[in-house]
């Protein structure tokens, strides 16, 4: 059973989600991995403008393989989320609605997810070819010099994800 979620991911929508739910995400989401996180984080600390609004948006921890001519994107699965842990609470405080990655999150991040009523979603690691089929549009909107790590604005249709940590702090990975 899949629930359909259309972005933006408002607090009302987040409140409905429970750890273990299977979701299909449709709408605009943004990619960011290690290097882009570092830049966004530093910009926030210096109170500089960041390239897009985090408010009610979803970040996908993903750096695609290059698109073949004629296709939207290459392989596009999630990367390990815990590498972003250092930056995540700061981004959540700026209104970020949710993140898509793979793997467990640190205590600080879980606390911040609860505090900010956000959500952590997981996509299946290593299913990059399958997931790429859900991406209908892709455009680099910032940090183009980072190559695969640049921020891509994606339009996705029925991207399959699972709620791993919900806004109450229920955690699918607990005890595993």
């Amino acid at each position: 059973m899949y629930k359909d979620i259309i972005t933006p991911l408002t607090k009302e929508k987040v409140a409905q989600l429970k750890a273990g739910d299977n979701l299909f995400i449709t709408g605009t989401i943004y990619t960011a991995r290690d290097a882009a996180h570092k830049r966004i984080y530093e910009a926030i600390l210096k109170e500089e403008k960041i390239p897009f609004s985090l408010e009610d948006n979803i970040l996908y921890y993903m750096g695609p393989s290059p698109a073949r001519p004629g296709s939207v994107i290459g392989s596009a699965g999630p990367t390990t989320a815990s590498r972003m842990d250092k930056y995540t609470p700061t981004l959540l405080n700026k209104g970020l609605g949710g993140m898509i990655g793979k793997g467990k999150r640190g205590k600080e991040v879980i606390r911040s997810i609860i505090q900010n009523k956000a959500v952590y979603l997981v996509a299946i690691g290593g299913a990059g070819a399958l997931l790429s089929k859900c991406i209908k549009k892709s455009k680099v909107i910032a940090y183009g010099d980072l190559g695969t790590e640049a921020i891509h604005e994606l339009y996705v249709e029925k991207l399959p994800v699972i709620v791993a940590i919900d806004s109450k702090g229920n955690n699918l990975y607990e005890n595993r």
Partner: peptide, 8 residues
């Protein structure tokens, strides 16, 4: 002909 995973 898409990489199995984006991390090649």
């Amino acid at each position: 002909s898409i990489p199995i995973c984006q991390d090649t």
